[in-house]
Design a protein around this nucleic acid. Sequence first.
DNA 1: AACCGGTGTGAACTATTCTTCACATAACCC
DNA 2: GGGTTATGTGAAGAATAGTTCACACCGGTT
Lengths: 217, 217
Amino acid sequence: MNKILIVDDDIEYTENLKEILDNAGYVNDAAESVKEAMEKLCTQQFDVILLDFMMPGIDGINALGEFKKISPNSKIIMITAFASIENAVRAIKNGASEYISKPFKIEALLLMIKQVIEELRFEGDIKKLKLEGTLSSLSNSIRREIIRMFQTNPKIRMMETARKLDIEDHTKVIFHLKILKEARILKQDKKRAYLLTKEGQKVLECLNILDNYLSEQ
Amino acid sequence: MNKILIVDDDIEYTENLKEILDNAGYVNDAAESVKEAMEKLCTQQFDVILLDFMMPGIDGINALGEFKKISPNSKIIMITAFASIENAVRAIKNGASEYISKPFKIEALLLMIKQVIEELRFEGDIKKLKLEGTLSSLSNSIRREIIRMFQTNPKIRMMETARKLDIEDHTKVIFHLKILKEARILKQDKKRAYLLTKEGQKVLECLNILDNYLSEQ
DNA sequence: AACCGGTGTGAACTATTCTTCACATAACCC
DNA sequence: GGGTTATGTGAAGAATAGTTCACACCGGTT
């Protein structure tokens, strides 16, 4: 059930829009000022924010920045009556997902909302895959020890790894190294030495974070 | 291979002790001052620290505190020529594992060292079990969703859980709830509602930590 | 080229985890 | 008490993860 926040000081426009979004199946709320919007964003999670460019007392780009700070995962659609390329570019560069000028066809806005919600879902899926990949890599103790080993050995070859971990069967080590390589946690250089990828460094960090957190009593 | 740091300004005593510990199979090092000891602790990991109560320029309890800050996992044995109940209590309350007074039989010290190393191993094993338990619980997506659910539902019953997670087969939900209960992450009250245990709250925190960490780009 | 240690592959096997099913027990309400 | 919903149990089957084995390929040295 996707939630949308309408930020506009034009009450009549807002009421119309609320009804349209309601009929389209969205849960929505409205704020007449940026201050009111920020208050709502502090206590509720919105998927999409429809932000009017011209809000009293604050320029739309500044409001955009403030919202991004409070609600980094929400998608912001900038709406303006005075369209310009410059403002469009500024808005997108400052974190808006989309930019649309009044007057617009309601179908165009609904389509845009649908698209940004798809983006949101896609980003959520990527995040889930990252988490699953990380947890899957860390769930096996040999792989944990391998990943930990890179804390003190930034580059290491396969047999060296087996010796450090005191594992005699080299194919066991290869199997787990292969899993980590396929998960893009490790890569190999020309001499076949293994190194952590950027992603792999994050996984090592997660392991350290968990170690430290669980050490606290 | 357990490492021991001897912190004492009596050179002759230290040399004797080094030889004895060497013969007993320990890797050891020495520092004549607390400052020197702290430098070594910053660059090396020691399992056991033998700390003389009377060090020049600093009282043993303060030194103890400093060492605990730098090397929280090391076990500290306080050694003193002027034994008193008061000092023993202070030392233990401030983090020493053991307290022994000179002159001592070498066998007694060796036994004490052996015991604190056992404690260290035991604590390490506990920590590993915690990490493995946490990762095992978090490695399955249904269990992740269950644990996440407690963020907004501190107390919930089984069928409610199934409905919230949109799982039709109630026995699947029961199976995973049972795993979490056996892992002491969940408990049940008299009305059979599930709640997070203290441990379970930690696991939820770990999940949030990982979520947040992996969200950063 | 031959030899040796290092590294890797894929399939068979084993172990573990998860899902499903049939049924049982418990609790609640009329 | 009876009917219905909620909750639970244990075993079988399915899916997934890990281990082992036999062998192949690679790279360096003599």
